[in-house]
């Protein structure tokens, strides 16, 4: 038995005003989220029919922070998703953006699409066997379309976080922990000249990896969780989905443990993203490993506050990214 959330009444009032034919909310359940950010699944009864929807909500409308990176406000997220959808990107349609006077907090309502986000299922379950080899190409297509979104109207609401800024940010974070990781210093030095010059500056999803990709036996259905979106170097998105930490043990399948990098790059080119070399991609995979390694260090800081055994264990996963950096930098692997 789930308790009705305290915002249910004002939320229904807001939807009655905003959506023609809306009757009421049923089956509302909390899916996930921390103190500053919630995701709710619900069905909306509209003209006697039930529609599957999602509410992303930040109760106080406060600033959201995800390990080491500042998240954009939910209203910005909704604007970027809609701009991307207009450019042909697969993402859930935004149905309503909450207003201050609704008294529900900050957030938006979007379509709840069918599909799976759990990597273990996508990489192992037989129902995905047939589609798995096609996913890398499709990811390339989606990324090319995200990177082709007209960024000029978004300039006022999105931060510019290009390669050099990211590198500086993560170096500062690493320095703030005061514990030596020579492999991270080596990677930082190695990356500096390689990340200095970007060919392009585009809209970037910012967290394009398992967990945020909705995949069905028909293919990639949508890119979710746009909270780290920004303007920057498009290679960031390509490198992140190829980082070994997101391959879930299937290291030989460079793209998310399901596909080959040349397939992703072919999809990227076919959808107008242009040519990307393996070396350019590798640079951003190195950055992805470094970033995740420093995020593991952040988990140890969290452990020192709350004593969680889970955070303690993640602290010891920095060394996974260090051996990945050895393979990438010293041996030119992917």
């Amino acid at each position: 038995m789930t308790m009705a959330p305290d915002f249910l009444l004002p939320f229904e009032v807001a939807l009655v005003k905003a959506i023609a034919g809306f009757e009421h909310v049923t089956n509302i359940t909390r899916l996930s989220g921390g103190a500053s950010q919630e995701t709710w699944s619900f069905d909306a009864l509209m003209d006697g029919k039930s529609e599957p929807l999602i509410l992303r909500r930040s109760p106080g409308g406060g600033k959201r922070v995800t390990e080491g990176s500042a998240a954009v406000p939910l209203t910005t997220e909704a604007i970027v998703i809609e701009a991307s959808r207009k450019a042909g990107v697969k993402a859930p349609g935004v149905r309503y953006v909450l207003k201050d006077e609704d008294g529900v907090g900050q957030g938006y309502v979007m379509d709840r699409l069918p599909g799976e986000t759990i990597a273990r299922k996508i990489l192992r379950d037989p129902e995905f066997d047939a589609v798995r080899p096609k996913l890398a190409f499709q990811c390339g297509e989606i990324l090319a379309r995200i990177h082709a979104v007209d960024k000029e109207p978004l300039r006022d609401i999105l931060p510019v976080i290009d390669g050099p800024i990211q590198l500086r940010r993560y170096r500062d974070l690493y320095d703030s922990y005061g514990y030596p990781h020579p492999m991270f210093d080596y990677a930082l030095k190695w990356l500096e000249p390689r990340m200095a010059e970007a060919k392009r500056q585009t809209l970037v999803h910012g967290d394009f990896r398992h967990g945020n990709l909705l995949i069905s036996p028909d293919g990639v259905e949508a890119a979710l969780d746009w909270e780290l979106t920004h303007i920057g170097d498009p290679l960031e998105d390509i490198g992140w989905i190829c980082t070994n930490s997101w391959r879930f043990g299937v290291a030989e399948k460079v793209v998310g443990g399901f596909g080959e990098l040349p397939d992703l790059l072919a999809g990227y080119k076919a959808a107008g993203g242009g040519d990307v070399s393996l070396d350019e991609a590798r640079t951003w995979i190195v950055y992805g490993s470094l970033k995740w390694g420093i995020m593991c260090m952040s988990m140890y800081q969290g452990f020192r506050v709350d004593g969680s055994v889970e955070r303690a264990a993640i602290g010891r996963r920095s060394s996974e990214t260090e051996i990945d950096l050895v393979n990438l930098i010293f041996h030119g692997m992917l």
Partner: peptide
Amino acid sequence: SMRDKIAIDQ
């Protein structure tokens, strides 16, 4: 060094 660390951790 990194091989030795990961052989202990994971």
